[in-house]
Design a protein around this nucleic acid. Structure first.
Length: 271
DNA sequence: AATCGCGCCTGACGGC
DNA sequence: TGCCGTCAGGCGCGAT
């Protein structure tokens, strides 16, 4: 499941393969994604030169001359660079064919992903313009977390997963960051002190940075035979460890739900 | 305005 | 072994 660090890793791996390349053709095999692939996608993309690959929240933005491709990998989306005419499987939705006889293939078995064409400024696209600050940017601080959370009764975990508050913090990293900050995931967002908000913002940044750094080490696998884009193996301290001992205090990690999401925490270390 | 919960989709996994 | 039910997950959206 690509979260922000994976998307950033993919962005890094992808850019050298596509930046500066011209799109010569587009094959759409299956339009059904979160939003149906627009019928004139091929017409819009043909002849475009990809200028850069950027990331906003968990979206990839391939900036072209007269617009941008906005990609979201959803739950199970994959991107691969392959020789043109490589046999396509059941879930290979779209091939973007480049001028060096390779193609960028988008595969998404669960169809939670998206591939959109945005004319004009992609950051003004309805999906992106509502996103809160990038968690790794200077704009995301404990102080803004504090101020925005006043009066909010939802759990702090749901709060930091709200992409209008901070964009791109997914379920796994929310649990991990809260552990690092020593904050109980079910605490009401509005009750956290400024001090704890600062600790949490720092923990979010640290968790994501470590994950991105780990991702970088496996980047070479981007073109691997399996098509595995090199998701890093971050050592998770609480996520999925229900019943196992906390690495810090030894108490059993607990699993619970917060807003329909599986949530993990240490009852000793997180208050 | 804030919150809740549904729907989308299919692979993986557990129980029988 | 195979069948079947359940769950996971991001995220927009409608309902409350």
């Amino acid at each position: 499941m690509p979260e922000l660090p994976e998307v950033e890793t993919i962005r890094c791996g992808l850019e050298p393969h596509v930046a500066g390349r011209k799109i010569t053709d587009v094959i759409v095999r299956n339009r059904s994604l979160r939003w149906p692939v627009q019928s004139d996608l091929a017409r819009m993309l043909r002849g475009q030169v990809i200028r850069s690959v950027e990331r906003r929240a968990k979206y990839l933005v391939l900036r072209c001359e007269s617009g941008s491709i906005i990609l979201h990998l959803g739950m199970a989306g994959r991107l691969r660079i392959l020789p043109v005419a490589t046999d396509a499987g059941k879930h290979d939705h779209v091939d973007i064919i480049l001028d060096n006889s390779t193609c960028l293939r988008f595969c998404d078995p669960r169809r939670f992903g998206a591939l959109l064409w945005s004319a004009g400024d992609p950051l003004q696209h309805p999906l992106l313009c509502v996103c809160g600050p990038e968690p790794l940017s200077a704009a995301f601080t404990g102080d803004c977390l504090y101020e925005r959370s006043r009066g909010r009764r939802i759990s702090i975990k749901q709060f930091i997963m709200d992409h209008k508050v901070v964009s791109g913090v997914g379920n796994i990293y929310a649990s991990e960051a809260l552990f690092l900050a020593g904050i109980h995931p079910l605490a009401a967002a509005g009750t956290l002190s400024r001090q704890r908000c600062r600790r949490l913002a720092a923990a979010v940044k640290k968790t994501l940075q470590k994950a991105i750094a780990a991702g970088g080490t496996t980047l070479r696998d981007f073109l691997g035979a399996t098509g595995d884009p090199g998701y890093f193996q971050l050592k998770l301290r609480v996520y999925g460890r229900s019943g196992e001992p906390c690495y810090v205090c030894g108490r059993k990690i607990r699993g619970t739900r917060s807003g329909q999401r599986s949530t993990f925490y240490c009852p000793q270390c997180q208050r």
